[in-house]
């Protein structure tokens, strides 16, 4: 069976690296390394030596200039000491069949780098962004998510409903053009949507939809289904006691199932 090698990238304000790595290990990842962005620049770590890449949540550069904006500039211009652009390594990694998971701030980085949604296969072109919540506030609350069965997303395969916490101030999806929104829906790029916890129906009602995202979009995938970006935090639901209804006997599926699906996919793709 192929080895699952997970790389969790941190530094410059990322702060969910430990629990993201923990979630990958729980899911059965054989090798799970947390490395700093500077380790990749220094040439100590190569992205393409892994097959599962996680961009965890956090506050890259303190959200100055907007979430992940400055980090996107850094990724675009960074090169190793040997002169190899980091984006080339990332491309090689992805072309070899690797999986990418971007959580919250990591999702914001993926859309700002143009890795998501990559409609029409246009990778590295920014097509959507994530802007201030309608409440204009950072909020920490748990939400229900409905997985889109029509999405090619590998991470959400077989899932229906998922409870996860959101912890962000900039999570409302904004398309470059209105037509982009239609294409997201038509192409299956929408992987996860905020849902009413009672009915499971997708919702625009606050706070079940915590940020006012159109069509309740909470997570996007690329045309291959191998990249998932989502605002909620699956790694923060790694234990039954994480759930706010734990003491009330609520025991829904752990958020780490997204990592399990990724590991299962990599194991199966020999």
């Amino acid at each position: 069976m192929p080895q699952v090698r997970t790389l969790v990238i941190t530094g410059f304000g990322t702060n969910c690296e430990v629990e993201s790595a923990h979630a990958a290990r729980m899911a059965g990842s054989d090798v799970t390394d947390i490395v700093f962005f500077s380790d990749i620049v220094a040439g100590r770590t190569r992205i393409d030596a892994y097959n599962f890449l996680v961009f965890p949540g956090g506050f890259l550069d303190g959200d100055d200039l907007g979430a992940a904006q400055a980090a996107a500039v850094r990724w675009k211009h960074a090169a190793t000491a040997a002169g190899e652009p980091l984006l080339d390594q990332l491309r090689t990694f992805f072309d070899a069949g690797g999986l990418i998971l971007g959580i919250c701030n990591g999702f914001q980085l993926l859309v700002k780098l143009g890795l998501l949604p990559a409609l029409g296969g246009a990778y590295f072109a920014r097509q959507v962004s994530l802007a201030n919540n309608d409440s204009a506030r950072f909020e920490d609350r748990w939400v229900a998510l409905a997985a889109n069965p029509a999405s090619p997303c590998i991470f959400t395969k077989g899932l229906t409903l998922l409870d996860l916490p959101v912890r962000h101030g900039e999570g409302k999806l904004v398309p470059m053009e209105p037509a982009v929104l239609d294409e997201l829906l038509a192409s299956g790029a929408v992987a996860l949507q905020y849902a009413d916890p009672a009915t499971g129906q997708i919702t625009m009602e606050y706070p079940a939809n915590p940020n006012g995202s159109p069509h309740a979009i909470a997570g996007l995938t690329d045309p291959t289904g191998r990249i998932l970006g989502l605002m909620p935090h699956p790694e923060a639901f790694n234990h039954p006691t994480n759930h706010p209804g734990y003491t009330r006997g609520e025991r829904p599926t752990l958020g780490t199932v997204l990592f399990e699906n990724a590991v299962a996919h990599l194991r199966a793709s020999a």
Partner: peptide, 23 residues
């Protein structure tokens, strides 16, 4: 105030500042 503070980063949260059926 509570909702504007991240009270579960680091992934170990077991009892949060707010609880109950409607949290």
């Amino acid at each position: 105030v509570v909702r504007q503070y991240d009270h579960e980063v680091k992934g170990g949260s077991a009892v949060k500042p707010l609880c109950g059926v409607r949290r």
